[in-house]
Design a protein around this nucleic acid. Structure first.
Lengths: 226, 226
DNA sequence: ATGAATATATTAGTATGGTAGTATGCAAAA
DNA sequence: TTTTGCATACTACCATACTAATATATTCAT
């Protein structure tokens, strides 16, 4: 088992373990359904069981781990119902947020949005999908921040963990990468032009209700799904 | 310091501590801004510090506690910006959910909704505001469940913790109790009649954008607010 | 050979002691 | 009187030891 370690400095052991595990789960270095134990992680990361347990507790709360007392802990399977709910939530909120953004959006964040888009183009050309993924998340966060609704994005990010694993799977199959960047361009354009007329349509395309890609993922990786 | 203890049986010490503290915070038995320590809670609840620490971690994640390493832990102040965001989120989602509910709603849950409303009336007459508060939460949860979106409600409940403390403060001043029950009646009526025309208006009234009651609360309990 | 009873190993849950960082009070100096 | 240095107490963080529950392996009787 390989863990995607993160810098340990300037932070507590708990935070270090938490970030490492979270990253490992989302980028599928820890597989959905895989069993792990406190002891094992503690040894791998050279800490005691205590901070590991405490990181586990947070990850359970976010739905990324499931702990069974006296039995063990497993990485949660990807639950497509939960993904559907997360998408519904994002669709609904993002329409409302984008309408706000089209009314007014602070210029400094608009600049950051443009920069982010430019970087997305670069990553697309260079096929750097991991970085593109991070830019995607940052893109949406910027929009929420511009509307003073960043806490909502943080909350979405929690229920969205499954959604993120799906994204990683899709990226690994190279599904729909270019389209997403194009959609981001159009969404940003709507904000810059204060033009809310296409918001509904753009969001529906960006976060469709029925994603046919799901079926393919399910066929390719049946053991990852609940 | 008094804690609102909950039944301890059939659950872990961690869960027991967590539920007890959460209840105590929401019902303001632990005051916003108040300092608490692991040691102190452990002694009061007759458990060791470990399950207390672990309960603290969950409560920090939900925004109800703030821990400062080597300094201490305090009950979070009520943050009105956060409350505004929570309301925005609920307004937006609840409109969408209620539109779904007006299209179709399972009959067994419709029955539970009717029962819940009847109990709300009873509590209103008997001035049992604590129970009414719980029924209120259950009312909304039932609607989300009927639309197969219960996870979203669970998530809202997290960001909503501040919102719930506000409700408790309002109830203690007897603000707007009757109105809320009436609003619930109308919302339920819309679902039963499959009539979505007034949804927008009902939600705006139930979860207003600007609540003048806030100012009064702020005057009455300035030390509770950030 | 098979099944049940028992022993062993493994797990998360809990308790406890030590550590390092922080605040506080007091005494000494300015 | 005010400020500085220091001792003390207090905190959350972490490591470790122990407990209780579960799963697995082994033994023994049939």
């Amino acid at each position: 088992m390989e863990l995607l370690s993160v810098p340990k400095r300037g932070t507590s052991a708990r935070e270090y373990v938490y970030e490492t595990l979270k990253r490992s789960i989302i980028f599928l270095s820890l597989k959905p359904g895989q069993s792990i134990t406190e002891q094992e992680i503690a040894e791998k990361l050279s800490v005691s069981r205590t901070p590991v347990r405490e990181a586990f507790i947070r990850l359970v709360q976010e739905g990324l781990l499931e702990t069974y007392p006296q039995k063990g802990t497993v990485v949660s399977l990807i639950d497509l119902e939960r993904v559907d709910e997360a998408r519904f939530m994002r669709r609904t909120l993002e329409k409302a947020i984008l309408r706000l953004a089209c009314e007014s959006f602070p210029s400094d964040l608009a600049f950051e949005l443009r920069s982010n888009l430019a970087l997305q183009e670069v990553c697309l050309e260079e096929q750097n999908f991991i970085r593109l993924f991070e830019l995607d998340e940052e893109f949406h966060r910027l929009i929420y921040r511009g509307c003073k609704k960043e806490r909502i994005w943080d909350l979405i990010a929690q229920i969205n963990a499954d959604f993120r694993r799906i994204r990683v799977l899709k990226l690994s199959l190279g599904i729909g990468v270019g389209e997403v960047v194009q959609q981001h361009r159009e969404i940003a354009g709507a904000i810059f032009d204060h033009n809310a007329t296409r918001i509904e349509e753009l969001v529906e395309v960006h976060l469709p209700q029925n994603d046919p890609g799901f079926e393919r993922l399910r066929r390719e990786y049946p053991e990852y799904f609940a």
